[in-house]
Amino acid sequence: MPLLKKAAATLSATAALLLALPTPSSATPAPHGTLARETFDRLPLGPVTAGHGWTADTANGSLTVAPSSTGHSRELRLHTEGNGRAFLVFPDLTAPGNSYWARLRLRVDAFPTAPDWAHWTIAEASGSDAPTLVRPLGGQYAPTDNGNFWGVGSDLGPTGDWTSWKTSAPAVAGAWQCVEFHLDATDNRVTVYFDGVEQSDLTVSTRQHGGTGDDFTFPAFDELKLGWQLYQADPTPSSYDLALDDIAVSTRRVGGCGA
């Protein structure tokens, strides 16, 4: 009987210790797996400036948590005026090998139709060690082809300012898409997927990119922005709205939206 009492006491102490341990969350992800995650379902409705591990970066723009337009809990709606910006920012996002996958559901209500060559960004990854901004999701209005087209881009690095848009990847307004991108530092490669399908025409890498001059190289990533920015003044339309949901960033491919 004393042995049984001692075993029971040990089990009780072990259970108490387990209950006292902190549980993982999106703000403190495991080092080899999920780096960030946000579904907006646990945030209050209304204007928001921060969430689970992220903050907001706005200028003539706003972020609002709203009931989901697809009938599934909540989503984030972003609004900008003119060439403003509205981003949610994961400020301390680092990954083993400087490589990671990101997935999100995205709907853009309208893309610019003026001025010519209007340039917009939806995702921007950066690092403090180099003046390079990698834009895996973005695009441009091309008057020569009368439309907006997706393209991977980069700013400020040795390859200069470029947006490698492709007419094979038209940007469609008013529809939800499941969007993924992979940043692979082994070849400074950016790969984009729409609704699970790889968009090979959008791939850029060390020597294959839209810039000129030196090889394209990644910075040591430590920040990721997701949202909207248009860079030209007096655009048409004069304001922009989009919605984000089911955001996940991981060292491995996450899979389809809602997974």
Rank of each mutant, 00 (worst) to 15 (best):
169 A>D: 10
79 H>Q: 04
69 S>V: 02
193 Y>Q: 07
10 T>D: 09
241 D>H: 08
30 A>V: 06
44 P>Q: 12
197 V>Y: 11
64 T>S: 05
155 D>S: 10
12 S>R: 14
171 A>S: 05
203 T>A: 12
203 T>E: 10
239 S>R: 02
82 G>V: 00
23 T>A: 09
38 E>W: 10
138 G>K: 05
182 H>D: 08
237 P>I: 06
249 V>Q: 09
127 G>S: 04
250 S>E: 01
61 G>D: 02
78 L>C: 12
97 G>A: 14
220 A>E: 15
115 P>N: 09
180 E>K: 06
70 T>N: 08
174 G>A: 08
1 M>P: 08
139 G>Y: 03
19 L>R: 11
150 W>K: 01
245 D>M: 12
140 Q>V: 15
86 A>Y: 04
238 S>W: 11
18 L>F: 07
23 T>V: 07
65 V>A: 01
141 Y>G: 02
40 F>G: 02
200 S>A: 15
218 F>A: 06
94 T>R: 15
118 A>W: 05
218 F>Q: 06
61 G>K: 01
249 V>D: 03
77 R>V: 14
127 G>D: 02
6 K>W: 10
208 Q>C: 10
172 V>R: 12
115 P>H: 06
165 W>R: 15
114 A>F: 11
196 G>K: 00
84 G>K: 04
93 L>W: 07
165 W>N: 14
129 D>Q: 01
161 D>S: 12
98 N>D: 15
251 T>Y: 09
211 G>Q: 02
99 S>P: 02
62 S>A: 15
201 D>F: 04
88 L>S: 03
60 N>M: 07
174 G>P: 00
258 G>I: 00
15 A>F: 04
32 H>V: 14
223 E>K: 05
40 F>E: 08
122 I>G: 06
46 G>C: 01
24 P>T: 10
99 S>M: 11
147 G>P: 04
30 A>R: 13
218 F>N: 10
58 T>F: 01
85 R>T: 08
159 T>L: 06
230 L>D: 00
125 A>I: 00
31 P>F: 09
214 D>E: 13
126 S>Q: 12
144 T>C: 04
194 F>I: 12
45 L>E: 14
102 A>M: 14
2 P>A: 14
207 R>L: 06
179 V>I: 15
118 A>Y: 04
76 L>T: 08
149 F>T: 13
143 P>V: 14
211 G>P: 05
103 R>K: 12
222 D>W: 03
201 D>S: 15
127 G>N: 01
206 T>R: 15
94 T>A: 14
123 A>W: 00
234 D>G: 00
240 Y>L: 07
103 R>N: 10
26 S>R: 07
127 G>E: 02
94 T>Y: 12
221 F>T: 09
208 Q>G: 07
3 L>N: 06
187 D>F: 05
99 S>F: 12
159 T>C: 15
239 S>Y: 13
66 A>N: 04
99 S>G: 13
143 P>A: 11
